[in-house]
Design a protein around this nucleic acid. Structure first.
Lengths: 191, 191
DNA sequence: AACACCGTCACGCCGCGTGATGGTAC
DNA sequence: CGTACCATCACGCGGCGTGACGGTGT
């Protein structure tokens, strides 16, 4: 039993629910340096250390980290997370509401960027006029470095990068529902 | 005429179309330190200097800066902008297309963050169940620090921060078109 | 003795903002 | 002479990544 005081790589950890730094990092898909950083800034310090100084994260630490990761995922800066973890539980909703406002502003920014981007593409002179949809799309795909005859390439790129992006991209380019369906049919024939 | 070699604050600049650093910053709504930074990283160095070392931006520099600002606005990192300005003009569309892909990924990220955020609000326990829309909305507004009887407050906040955000916020919260219309009517009665 | 883990520095990234310290134009 | 501009340099931010150098566990 005294040999089981420190969590090795052999299952002892799962009994006592104690994690080394790399183990707990792996659990949450984080890196070791992230945990080191969280310790440095006082966001999450392990509740114990071994005699030789190894960080030991308890089950309670794991739950705290779970909270941290959740807040981080919704974009709350780490110092705000720290404030919240120290505070009583009451003030959470204002923070979330503020975050919502900020996110909507970010989305507006992205929309504006997209608008400008489209203007630049239009100004490039290649997509002017009212060419048929497929011609436009093919031209754009070619210019984007996709081989001729591979109009589906840009589609596949989208699928890889962002599952939902493709439809939104087409709509953002200002194509109608009908045109989008036409393009999808075209893609499916080729792939 | 020799007195007019340097662009003072008195209109001489507008004749020769030469700008001092603060002047050209003002033209584009940038700060002086931004221009200093662009010079440091070799993105935009003024084509001339006075004998005493003052930066002098020519009309050509102004056009270059116009390009830079445009690319920056659509989110292209400065080193890529530099690459593009040095290269021949041909490769612009691939860059734009890549930027489009990245932006759509960013939007997906924001959507995912919003989804998580909503789950957190729901988990807070206050908005569970199928309470009527206005009750939910009022509760959220109160929790967000808006005075009771001021349900329109959150609406006004949205208007200030983001003109388009309000409708999207309601839709994102999962409210139906009918419910949204009901809320808008409610707001208009009070304001 | 090998090998995988652990520790603590310290510096790099991006796009600037901020201030210090001192010179210059009008 | 004032004061509003200009120069250079150095350090700071957030959220880590990266690597160096050395100790520890098995």
């Amino acid at each position: 039993l005294p040999a089981c005081r420190y969590p090795g790589r052999k299952g002892c950890a799962s009994i006592h629910r104690i994690y080394t730094i790399s183990k707990i990092a792996e659990v949450f898909g984080l890196s070791r340096s992230t945990l080191l950083y969280y310790d440095r800034i006082g966001l999450l310090s392990p509740s114990e250390r071994t005699a030789s100084g190894y960080r030991l994260y308890s089950e309670k630490d794991r739950r705290t980290l779970e909270q941290i990761v959740l807040y981080r995922e919704i974009g709350v800066p780490l110092d705000k997370i720290r404030d919240y973890l120290n505070e009583a539980h009451e003030g959470v909703l204002p923070m979330l509401a503020n975050r919502l406002l900020a996110m909507n502003a970010e989305i507006d920014t992205l929309r504006e960027q997209q608008r400008l981007l489209l203007e630049m593409i239009e100004a490039e002179g290649s997509l002017k006029g009212k060419k048929p949809f497929l011609e436009k799309m093919t031209h754009l795909a070619e210019k984007a470095g996709i081989r001729p005859g591979d109009e589906a390439g840009i589609h596949r790129v989208f699928e890889r990068v962002s599952p939902e992006a493709h439809r939104r991209f087409l709509e953002f380019l200002g194509f109608s529902e009908t045109e989008v369906r036409e393009f999808i049919r075209h893609i499916k024939k080729r792939v």
